[in-house]
């Protein structure tokens, strides 16, 4: 009962803040809504007993990535990029892609019910990551490393 109540509260927060990100023209408020959205998703993870995942979601997304986004938005003048949608074609294209994605995703989500039995403790999470999914983990690591090197290359002043 209590859990369901909290779930609906969090789900409402997730949906509401996602809508706010899309609809609010002011980039500062949109960023803060996105932070709220990420925190609410972390709350849903915690509700599913995946504490480690929730903590990592807060640390990485809400704590590190979004702070940098906020940083950039605070430094750039707000009026320079208030709600500019270039063309309606992009809008329809994006909507079509999202619907296609959901059309493929939703039937598969509802059928995979066994995942809920996995314990959310750090130990079981680590074992899962380093035994069953070790290849995926390594590939993700290499991808992140490549992205990091790329970021340093782009960020470097030419002539250094």
């Amino acid at each position: 009962m209590m859990n369901e109540l909290i779930f609906y509260l969090l789900a409402g927060l997730v949906l509401g803040s996602s809508l706010a990100v899309l609809l609010i023209p002011n980039p500062m408020y949109a960023t803060l809504s996105l932070v709220g959205n990420l925190l609410a998703v972390a709350g849903i993870y915690a509700l599913l007993n995946a504490h480690f995942l929730a903590v990592v979601q807060v640390t990485v997304y809400a704590g590190a990535v979004m702070v940098l986004v906020l940083f950039v938005i605070m430094l750039i003048n707000n009026r320079d990029f208030e709600a500019r949608i270039p063309s309606k074609i992009y809008f329809f294209l994006a909507s079509a892609l999202v619907f296609l994605f959901l059309y493929i995703l939703i039937p598969r989500l509802s059928s995979s019910g066994e995942a809920s039995n996995v314990e959310g403790s750090v130990r079981s999470f680590g074992l899962l990551l380093f035994q069953d999914y070790v290849i995926n983990f390594q590939i993700a690591g290499i991808l992140l490393l490549a992205a990091m090197v790329g970021a340093i290359m782009i960020g470097r002043r030419s002539g250094d």
Partner: peptide, 18 residues
């Protein structure tokens, strides 16, 4: 009594930046 207690403190610390 969280399993990831030490990490939880780190996560909350990163929220305080906001």
């Amino acid at each position: 009594p969280l399993d990831a207690g030490a990490l939880f403190i780190l996560a909350m610390g990163s929220i305080a930046v906001y």
